[in-house]
Design a protein around this nucleic acid. Structure first.
Lengths: 205, 205
DNA sequence: TAGATTGTTAATCGATTAACAATC
DNA sequence: TAGATTGTTAATCGATTAACAATC
């Protein structure tokens, strides 16, 4: 397979959400031009993105909403369950754990780790909050696909190292810490401050 | 001023955080090569990014950590207070409201809006939670620089419209809704599902 | 001075867009 | 068939990197 850029993958996520909405509204087909309009991009971009993965449309007619949605579900790997472990049971961790959209997409939390003795031993839904010192052992015994790091920045580096040792292959990091991972491990950073600072930059102009 | 890309602005945010850390560790100077190493990019990229805004270094010696940090603070507009309004007092809104890093950077919430009668009338710290139907009036009387939207996706479109009417110029949107704003209004989207779907895509390969 | 490192220009790389033959 | 729209190639645009003169 030709190398797929992160840009393309992010747009696929967007097409997926747009198609879900069209399907809910009972719209049977969509053209690349309409999909582009709804996504705020060009129709050439839409067709180019899809062309990496196959031919999903019909010339003259466009795309079947349901078929294209199902194809993107396959491409993004959303046709199965993804297990996750949460590090950090603070307010951000809480928001992520209880975020409806994740479970609907097939992502669900199996483990929660924290260092706060007041939290360790309690439960969120039916998931125990475990002390972080046991995380490596727990994840070796009962691995997850993805770890979500929502701890203070100082804690993130150690957590990444234990995750690599435990064999976790996907990491979503919310801590504003520069992290590196070996080949074969996928790391995505979400930095809330960066988005705000981009606004303050453009608002200052 | 030459047009500055969003890529450059995001890297400036990163340089800022790296420089804060170097300063805290008492390191007086840094070269573009070292800054690049810490940020996981190339030294040419660092020098190019900075060159849009001025000459901050000394040939042969590199950059003064404190001076460069202060210069970036100016560039990003972090040398002042930014007022914000939060829409949606759910668990994500709660996490954002109580997020330490924002206030440290000069961003703070002045208003919180929600539609839940159980929440309206209560307070977070010293900020009243107000019914969303009064948001436009409140924001006209007491405007903010930035609105943060952490509501269900169905609510986002109406909120964006009221914000535009109220004259709010910066919007940080967490709702997975395709939104458009007129010229002069800056919108940034943060979509948590997109980051996870990018992981599931690459993990599926 | 000699070594180090910036600031900037030119070259490269990769992503987006335009254009159009294929075809429903 | 005629009009519409895909899939793909080539052209364009913009971002990154290499290279190096300037200079501390």
């Amino acid at each position: 397979m030709e190398k797929i850029s992160e840009f393309t993958v992010r747009r696929l996520s967007n097409y997926y959400r747009i198609l879900l909405d069209l399907e809910k509204r009972g719209i049977p087909t969509v053209s690349s031009a309409r999909l582009a309009e709804l996504g705020g991009i060009t129709s050439a971009q839409v067709r180019k993105d899809l062309s990496y993965f196959g031919n999903f449309g019909t010339r003259g007619l466009g795309y079947s909403v349901t078929e294209l949605k199902n194809a993107i579900v396959e491409i993004l790997g959303l046709n199965r369950q993804w297990t996750m472990a949460l590090f950090g049971a603070g307010s951000l961790g809480h928001a992520l754990f209880f975020h409806e959209g994740f479970r609907e997409d097939g992502f669900y939390f199996k483990h929660v780790f924290d260092v706060d003795p007041k939290k360790v031993g309690t439960k969120w839904n039916d998931v125990d909050i475990t002390h972080q010192r046991n995380a490596e052992e727990v994840l070796r015994r009962d691995p997850v696909h993805i770890a979500v790091v929502a701890t203070p920045p100082e804690a993130a580096t150690d957590i990444i190292e234990l995750l690599v040792r435990a064999g976790t292959k996907g990491i979503l990091n919310f801590a504003p810490t520069q992290l590196t991972v070996p080949d074969g491990v996928w790391l995505r950073n979400v930095n809330l401050a960066v988005a705000l600072e981009s606004l303050s930059f453009y608002l200052s102009m």
